[in-house]
């Protein structure tokens, strides 16, 4: 039997992209700046975010969503900052999707917030495909992971707006080759801004907060 071709031309993640677009409009209407934090498991997202929330809370209204396959441990840690935090337990899903973010925020008054941080599931592959409606996508890389991570996971770096090196206080102890890491980031994403931080020692954290304030001002 004769078959025929029917043109479709549709993004496979169209549903997610439409939901992300709606979220982006809601965020803009509420004058809310949203940051999506992605990294491998153990890169220090939660510690970094805890320090960020604690510092920012003194100056503005902040909140966080945190995605994990299981447990509410990260939300409990982040709540110590005093900011409102909600855990998204994804079960078997290895990334956050716009729909999960939308449901988690359903009863939140977004206009009462200045910054919302979304800590994605620790994974350097899957979160790259899903727009969450964020203003800023930040990829974190810890000094303990090795300098070649950007080369191994170019897609997530390619889609990021900012890279943050974490645990810089451990750089010397683990023999971190800073120049090599910065070079590799630039190889997969030329021009990407990189901040060097340590949530524990406080290194670079003020620069990060300034970056947030600047980004929010121009968004």
């Amino acid at each position: 039997m004769q078959s025929r071709i029917v043109e479709v031309r549709q993004g496979i993640l169209k549903k997610n992209d439409l939901l992300a677009r709606d979220l982006r409009q809601r965020f803009a209407a509420a004058d809310l700046f949203v940051v999506n934090l992605v990294s491998s498991p153990g890169a220090g997202k939660t510690t970094f975010l805890q320090a960020t929330l604690t510092s920012l809370r003194a100056r503005c209204r902040v909140a966080a969503l945190v995605g994990d396959l299981a447990t509410e441990r990260d939300a409990e840690r982040l709540k110590q900052s005093g900011a409102p935090v909600r855990q998204i337990v994804t079960g078997t899903v290895c990334h956050l999707e716009a729909e999960m973010v939308g449901s988690a925020l359903a009863d939140w008054d977004l206009a009462a917030l200045d910054f919302l941080f979304i800590e994605n599931v620790g994974n350097l592959v899957c979160p790259a495909s899903y727009d969450l409606g964020e203003n800023l996508r930040v990829v974190l890389l810890s000094v303990t992971e090795g300098e070649d991570k950007p080369l191994k996971y170019p897609t997530i770096f390619s889609g990021a707006d900012l890279a943050i090196l974490t645990k810089m206080d451990l750089a010397e102890a683990v023999g971190f080759d800073r120049d090599e890491a910065l070079h590799n980031i630039q190889e997969v994403r030329p021009g990407l801004e990189v901040l060097e931080t340590s949530a524990r020692s406080g290194l670079g954290m003020e620069g990060w907060l300034e970056k947030l304030a600047r980004s929010r001002a121009i968004s």
Partner: peptide, 22 residues
Amino acid sequence: PAPDVVRGRELELTALEVSEIP
């Protein structure tokens, strides 16, 4: 160095190949 990606992020259903069922 060339950061501007013009192609390569596609994740798209372009067409269906169908046949009529008698």
